[in-house]
Structure formats: structure tokens, C-alpha cells
Nucleic acid binder design. Sequence first.
DNA 1: TAGATTGTTAATCGATTAACAATC
DNA 2: TAGATTGTTAATCGATTAACAATC
Lengths: 208, 208
Amino acid sequence: MNKVKVPDIIVSRLPVYLRALQYMAANGNTTTSSQELGEKVGISAAQIRKDLSQFGEFGKQGTGYHISFLIERLLQILKVETIWDVVLVGMGEIGHAILRYQGFGNRGFRIVACYDSDPAKIGSQVASFTIGDVKNIIKDIKDGSYKMAMLCVPASVAQEVTDKLVEAGIKGILNYAPVSLAVPPDVRVQYIDPVIGLQRMAYYLTEK
Amino acid sequence: MNKVKVPDIIVSRLPVYLRALQYMAANGNTTTSSQELGEKVGISAAQIRKDLSQFGEFGKQGTGYHISFLIERLLQILKVETIWDVVLVGMGEIGHAILRYQGFGNRGFRIVACYDSDPAKIGSQVASFTIGDVKNIIKDIKDGSYKMAMLCVPASVAQEVTDKLVEAGIKGILNYAPVSLAVPPDVRVQYIDPVIGLQRMAYYLTEK
DNA sequence: TAGATTGTTAATCGATTAACAATC
DNA sequence: TAGATTGTTAATCGATTAACAATC
């Protein structure tokens, strides 16, 4: 679709722009500039303009960007205009917290199935879901119905469950397990490990 | 301490190396190479050697790295040999989940106090903590006793709470609120927003 | 019109990779 | 010794910034 491949570092900033724009819109703003948006997200105005220019011309000289229009375009570009179905694997503490979290729906994602490997959990009801056996994932979703998964299993089994997800046709994994995953080139992994963030900040702290 | 400032992009990879090394150590491995470590974390061997060389010479030609020694050095470099005290602000769904999470302690961090602004929650007991009034944060920690915070308040109040944390001397904020924060240059923010990760992956998906 | 701000170009800056001497 | 792997240099590659013509 795109003539030239857009660098991933640019793609990674688009959701941040989108989030800020939606926040502005919710506060009643109708227009903004690369300058103003840049201040909100901590990125230079030049970079925002350069990033957006990869996808088209969305602003007007002299006046800047119409917020609702730019939001629409970013939703299109990121392919989150409609809702993606996501499967949740691992119903421990984190899995339950994710299931209770209300913040996915209005940003393009919803959980449609839950899995675990613990016989004590399989078959039980959580919210509106019946927990399925992780062994059946491949069979269940091999029709390609689902492309994304959230992985909340212990680190010790994360790779083997990942292999199953990949075999089942999953192409994007949001990984909460504190371990690096190996996947084929056409599968993306995003890591959520709060400790990595804390350790990274600790480096800059001078004393306790 | 360091003669030359180390690029943040290098610092950001160190916790990932550390995590993989600790995983190897837990599995009984005693030595590794930049090649092997690189395969585990998805980073080139040359880059790992270059990153580590910023801090010293930790390997041996011909044999590679002694895992436990390299772990020790990374713990030192990242300043996570001993435990950092972290305050938790915002006792909603996410705040409670974080409090229940057992994965911080053995990686360098522990929660030492909880705050909220909801009168219905202030004074109540959660686990071993009494929830404090967010208004008192500045007074409570102005002695500089705590340097890090986890922020789990709604996006609408995240900036004002952040300002209080900064005034209270907090230098590192792990932000779970889905909004960009403005902070002085000596304060670091790390963002945890799963939807950003999901949207970023959605870009690469071809169809539903 | 005058002022503001875009989209884009060229220059700068920084990060990654490839290669290899050193050496365990 | 021969093989393996480091730490480091130089080359390559890619990302950011500064500047400005175009134009709303």
C-alpha cells in the first residue's frame, strides 16, 4: 500500500500523536500546530511534520492541523478505525487485571477469548468468558479469525505458548511476560515489563 | 561517575540484557557469548559488545562472558543492587493490580506507600498499606526519602499529580496514565500504555 | 496584506554494522 | 598451538534538526 516502507521509529510515534490529539479533542480543541502538539508529547515540531509527511499532507500553511481530520487519518493509517479482536492467554493476576481494564474498547481493541493451561482454571467463568485450554488455541483460531494476542503467562512457558500462537496465525503479541521472545519476521512483539522501565530510570538516579 | 555521558538508547538495552542473563543463570548456565546473548534478546552481537564496552571490559577473548559476573556489573551500573523504595499513586484498578504483583521485589523495587485523592479510599487499608491523601505527598516525602513513583491515576489528573510528585522530589515516574507528561529535565518518565503497543502492531497487520 | 505555519530539502548528528587485531 | 571471541576502529547507515520557499 505504501510506496516506500515507513521506518518503524516513525510508526512508533503515531499512536502517541493520536493519543494527544484525542485528548485535545476531548477538551474541545479543534485545531493545533506541529509546535503545540510537539510541546504536548515532547517531540520537536520539525519531527512531527516530517513524520506526518510520510503519509500525506494533512495540514494547512498558516493555520496548522484540524484535529478531528488528523485523528481520522491517523486512525486509518494505524488501521484502528474499527475494533481488533484480541485473545488473552494466561489468567493469572495480570490476565485478570487486563480483563477488568476498561481502556481498550474505545481505542480499537477488545478481548474476545481467554486461555490458560491450569486445569483448575480451564472451564471456569471469568467475567463473560469461559477460560479455554491453551492446548486448543491452534484448533480454535486456525481459521485466521484473530491476529493479536496478549500474553500473560509465566516467563518459563512464554516461548512455548508463543510458538503455539504463531502457529495459530497470530501476527501481533503484546507480551507481559518478563522475557524476550523469538518469533518469525512477520510477527511483531511489543513488550510490557514495568521493571525494565524502573531499572532504566534507576540508572539516572544519584542516590537513595 | 562516568567520564562521558552514555547514550540513553544504550542504557535502555541494559535491563534487557540483565533480564536475559538472570534467566540464563536461573537455568544453570554459567557463561555466554555476545553471539548467544544477542540471539536471545534479538540484538546483534556487535551491538551488545559495543554497549558493554561503554562501561568496561567484562568478557574474555575466546570464552565470552561469565554470567554471574556480568549480572553483578549490570546491577551496579543500573544501580539496582539494592532495593529502591517506590510510592504508588492512584488506587484504582491498575493501582490494586500493581500492589498485588509479586514481580518487583526480586528485581530491585518495592512499594512503600500508596496514595489516592478519593475520600472514600483515603484511610482505608489495602494489603499492608493505609492509603494516604495525595494532598499530603509533598509533606510526606519532602525529605527526599523517595525518588521513584508509579502513577496510576486517570489521565485527566495525571499532570497535576505529576507536578506534586516533582515538587516532592520524585526523579523517576513510571506512568500508567495514557497521557504524555511534562516534567523538568532532571526527572525521567517511563510510559506503560498497552494500547500504544497494540496500535503500533496494528499498523503492520494486513487484514482482520 | 502581514503573520503564521506547513511540507521539504540539505546539513548535521548519532547509531549500527562489519571487520579485525589482540588475546584467552 | 588452533579456535573462539572479545573490544575497538572505521565505514555505513539512518534519524533528527535547521532553514526556508510556498501558501493559507
